[in-house]
Design a protein around this nucleic acid. Sequence first.
DNA 1: CAAGGTAGTCAACCAAGTTGTCCAACCATA
DNA 2: TATGGTTGGACAACTTGGTTGACTACCTTG
Lengths: 149, 149
Amino acid sequence: MEPVPMLLAMTYRAMGDQFHDRLRQIGLEPLRPAHGYVFRFLKARRATTVDIGQHLGVTKQAAAKIVNELDEWGYVLREPHPTDKRAQYVTLTTKGRDYLKFADNLWSDLEQEMAEAIGEDTLATIKTGLAAYLQHVHGEDQPGLRPVW
Amino acid sequence: MEPVPMLLAMTYRAMGDQFHDRLRQIGLEPLRPAHGYVFRFLKARRATTVDIGQHLGVTKQAAAKIVNELDEWGYVLREPHPTDKRAQYVTLTTKGRDYLKFADNLWSDLEQEMAEAIGEDTLATIKTGLAAYLQHVHGEDQPGLRPVW
DNA sequence: CAAGGTAGTCAACCAAGTTGTCCAACCATA
DNA sequence: TATGGTTGGACAACTTGGTTGACTACCTTG
């Protein structure tokens, strides 16, 4: 049996490819994974570019590029930080929230198909197992999302 | 709970970081993941640069770069293909096999620690579950290893 | 044996990061 | 409250690790 990281990488790739293909089939412009992760991150909290960079596991400059793109494309906008005049909160526009909602549906479709393929309980074990491992290794501050290739 | 791909990406990153850190601690030069995957691939079969590219999920030119590096560093060598004068088999040197053996030990240490953290049966379920999903989606020809970021 | 496909290489290019530098604003503290 | 260290954001130069395209030599098949 292959080592765990290879299984993780291949599964990640396989799911991502499927997601991407279906987005294109539908005609929605397929952003990169990082963009989607930013949406999901912003949905749950107010965040600055620095926060986003940390969450993705890249430098703040790299995060700034992504935020700029999302801004140009109309998915996010920047608003002044209430107390810190240097900082800006990045927030989702309606377009951004709509995209996220659509992507969420697509993801849960894919996850449902995965459940049918390998069993609902197996999928549940995978999710809780991985989450527990992450908790064990990193505690509260989760690792960056970006896979090191 | 986070969607599956995020869990996969974070766990991949977390394990890879640990692996990398320990390699450095020991003083062994830490190659990139792709190099290790090439070793593992070559251990099981004779392969050309094109085969390797396909396995990694990159173009043959990108694979050629990696093979060149491994050649320069003494981990692999090229030998003529017995029947096809264009092609070359890439094969592991002793240095390459030694590195792989060492890495394998380190990986099984990490996997053992994972088993202790989340339970041996949970880990086993994760491995067989992911493998089953890959089988279900791709059949025999597995997807490339490279995570699309 | 002609026509199309394939392995490997060279070269130009590109995307997505990085490091380094800077400024304005923040914050702790003595 | 002055001050020295830190932080958010931006700009620029550079590096990395890929891509596409073109070409040759060789293979394969009708």
